[in-house]
Nucleic acid binder design. Structure first.
Lengths: 198, 198
DNA sequence: CAGTGAGGTCTACGGTCGTAGACATAGCGG
DNA sequence: CCGCTATGTCTACGACCGTAGACCTCACTG
């Protein structure tokens, strides 16, 4: 709308600290999701954002702090489960089956978590991020006894499916059609979501 | 029993290629399980085995090939699930809850998998190892439709619990008592193990 | 148009990584 | 007792890592 906040479009970006910082952060989310905390280098993040490595540390202090913000950014806008409490189980199962489909490869926070958790420091940061974002929201959505544990168990299941289907790519699971997987996942998730098991 | 195959006990080992190779392999399993493929260094593996880094490459060719053998060694003797087809669900749930307890920290293949999967090459090796060991055996144990997929989904669930309970250490799950967790896991696992859901 | 501060880059350091080739040594066969 | 081979070590190379400080340069202000 306003012509003073335009982007050149071709590689070079005008001198704008906010936009540059945002570009670095987006590049970091992408790199950490694809290669994990240890596997993604500061130079790589900087290069994909069109800047040099030092600017990353200038804006974010260190790689570790960059990761903190990347985790926040990755987890923030995600709705791990649906919002409708009635069809929660089906929605969650279908959504997970769709997201982990062989073709679709968006930047999912679970991928970032899986591939970064090997580093102890990164694991702490992830734990904090999970607690801050999905954890509380999800626990509120679930009712009954052990709501918090059931919520984290649901996250465990989701993470496990991401791991085996997309990261390790076990053949039967990676090649399964979405509908069958969604049905199976619905049955598995039900004891965690729908009625508390006494 | 035979006194000619003794170990000195104090650090120094006699010149025995087989024993040295074995010591390196055990050290590698430990290091890869604790730090993952990228996080474990060849020098560290060698040091904990009482040798130098070059001997590792002399015996195993490269770090990657060492990882292949370490994966095999880690996955081989493990019984992911019980053997009794009747009480399979309960046994598996109880076993998982016990293994992931806060104090117990044995060298589990799922930990090795979780912390190494970020590296694409390591992920391939793990996929092959899973298929070679637990995959086939587990699929045979399960009956009904989608046995292979249900087996891998069970592995997903187990891996997810390991991840959230021990690696990321989410509070509610990490602090949960074994019995409650085992009960919850039994309900979640039942659709995957007990009766095929039509 | 000149100066000034924000925005960005250059060069470099210390460290660790996987790995290659030359070298040392222990222990058994003769 | 001697020598030979398996067993293991030493030194080093090239690459990459995160990060620090000095330097440049653009764009706006007066």
């Amino acid at each position: 709308m306003s012509e003073d906040t335009q982007e050149p479009g071709d590689g070079s970006r005008r001198r704008d600290a906010g936009a540059t910082r945002e570009a670095i952060l987006l590049s970091a989310v992408e790199a950490f999701t694809r290669a994990g905390y240890d596997g993604a280098g500061v130079r790589e993040v900087a290069g994909n954002a069109g800047v040099t490595a030092m600017l990353v540390n200038r804006y974010f202090g260190s790689k570790e702090h960059l990761f903190v913000e990347a985790v926040d950014r990755s987890f923030a806008p995600r709705t791990v489960v649906g919002d409708d409490p009635d069809a929660l189980t089906e929605q969650t199962a279908i959504s997970l089956a769709a997201r982990t489909a062989p073709d679709a490869d968006d930047l999912d926070p679970f991928l970032l978590m899986l591939r970064s958790a090997a580093n102890p420091r990164a694991a702490e940061i992830i734990r904090a991020g999970v607690g801050r974002h999905v954890g509380r929201h999800l626990t509120d959505l679930l009712s009954g006894p052990d709501a918090a544990a059931r919520a984290e168990l649901l996250l465990s299941l989701i993470a496990g499916v991401w791991l085996m289907r997309k990261v390790v790519a076990t053949p039967a699971l990676a090649g399964m059609d979405q509908d069958s997987l969604a049905r199976l996942l619905t049955d598995v998730m039900r004891p965690l979501i729908d009625p508390p098991p006494a």
